[in-house]
């Protein structure tokens, strides 16, 4: 599948943003009400990242001026649900922020904010996980991976902010390291399944001619390109793929885990946590680029020459 930058940025940014909002909500629910600089920076970053992602997602639309229509089909469409849930989550987060500002504990609103933030991330992942046509995406681990990355991003950013504004992050770096570790465990399993699952659709099943022999394309329907090939015909080179997976894992997994561990041992905690956050987000951009570039669509069985 064609890796569109607007969508890559959207999933990474809104995933991290809703992760931060979920972290703020959970903190309040557990009675660790975010205050002062932590409060302000947390909400600015949480709202900023999630809204920047949502705005970016409209950039790839043919008619962004009609985007409001996408809120209407929540009964059947995950994309529509995602839009509606994002608005509900942001509204709840707004109410939660306001209640804290007015001196409240925000326990209930915090819990609701966290829940709806995570449900929003879940529905983002289901836009991809529901597509039977893209086998690599259509597996139960897809939402797990999205949710884990969102939680890990939220925890990392929250730990960094707590370090800077609340004078110490306590167990937060350890929690964040655990979540990063978990997320990459899920991701490695996801990769494995995607690499080894037997293919669902073949040129033989696509043409129904398998009983006659092995099917391959002799002539493409047109000598020029077309929308299908542009959108779904993207193919990544094997060498590239292996290299990028290493980069994603290194930046998004190994660096943040070690950096947070150093921070939890009291070694320049601010610096190491900042490094963890930046490396994690960078690694996630590579991971999300691969998410699209590696995925193969069933329509390409009609364009197979081998």
């Amino acid at each position: 599948m064609h890796p569109a930058y607007s969508i890559i940025f959207f999933t990474v940014s809104s995933g991290a943003g809703f992760g931060v909002l979920a972290a703020l909500g959970l903190a309040a629910f557990l009675g660790l009400t975010p205050q002062g600089g932590l409060y302000w920076a947390g909400f600015v970053i949480g709202f900023g990242l999630s809204m920047a992602g949502l705005v970016s997602s409209t950039f790839h639309l043919g008619h962004p001026e009609r985007a409001w229509r996408a809120l209407s089909q929540w009964r059947s469409s995950w994309l529509s649900r995602e839009g509606v849930l994002a608005i509900v989550a942001l509204a709840l987060a707004g109410a939660f922020a306001l209640s804290l500002l007015m001196g409240g504990q925000g326990r209930l609103l915090g819990l609701l904010t966290a829940a709806f933030s995570l449900i929003t991330v879940y529905s983002t992942s289901m836009i991809y996980a529901q597509l039977k046509t893209v086998q690599r995406w259509c597996q139960p681990l897809t939402p797990v991976v999205f949710l884990c990355f969102s939680l890990a991003g939220g925890a990392l950013i929250y730990a960094f902010l707590a370090q800077v504004f609340a004078g110490g992050a306590g167990v937060l770096p350890t929690v964040a390291a655990l979540l990063v570790f978990l997320a990459w465990g899920a991701k490695l399993g996801w990769w494995r399944r995607g690499d080894t699952a037997p293919v669902l659709s073949t040129p033989e099943s696509a043409t129904g001619l398998g009983a006659m022999g092995k099917v391959r394309m002799l002539e493409a329907p047109h000598t020029g390109g077309n929308y299908l090939l542009k959108e779904m015909g993207y193919k990544i080179g094997r060498k590239h793929q292996a290299r990028l997976r290493q980069i994603a894992l290194m930046l998004g997994g190994i660096v943040p885990v070690f950096a947070t561990l150093f921070a939890s041992w009291g070694l320049w905690p601010g610096l190491f946590l900042l490094m963890a956050v930046l490396a994690f987000l960078g690694g996630l951009l590579a991971e999300r680029w691969l998410f699209f570039a590696e995925a193969e669509h069933s329509v390409m069985t009609y364009y197979t020459r081998t």
Binding site: H60, G62, H63, I127, T133, E231, M232, V299
Partner: peptide
Amino acid sequence: DACIGCGLCAWACPYGAREMDPVEKV
């Protein structure tokens, strides 16, 4: 008139039966 040109339906069709209009973006 209601299509926003998100292209998700073309992703969902296994057969490649939907194409985005390169001018109208629907």
